[in-house]
Amino acid sequence: MPSITREEVAHLARLARIELSDDELDHLAPQLDQIITLVGQVSQVAADDIPPTSHALPLTNVMRPDENVPCLTPEQALSGAPAAEEQRFRVPRILEED
């Protein structure tokens, strides 16, 4: 039995907001199955009492003084926008038609 099915890959792609074609799914699903088998090797390590490391540095709550500093102008901030209107990012509508 594969470690991940084609249907599961399609579901994950939807969660990750990537529209996949059937061809891509045919190609990706078996590759991901192989990769998941590889990464699953981590379960062979006995690590129940080992604390997790999320980060190489033991840093917590890095703070800086709360000071006003110059920031991007509206023109700079919008310079890469796919669409802009009235000094704002123009986005497609948020709600689907019912």
């Binding site: 792609a13 990750a16 907001r17 990537i18 991901l32 689907e96």
Partner: peptide
């Protein structure tokens, strides 16, 4: 909708390896 535009853009804009890793990470 915005959500559909996002999905279509990521499909067109990302290559195969990026898709593989995003899906693996999501899993």
């Amino acid at each position: 909708s915005a959500e559909t535009v996002t999905s279509l853009t990521r499909e067109a804009g990302f290559g195969a390896e990026v898709k593989r890793r995003i899906i693996l990470g999501t899993h």
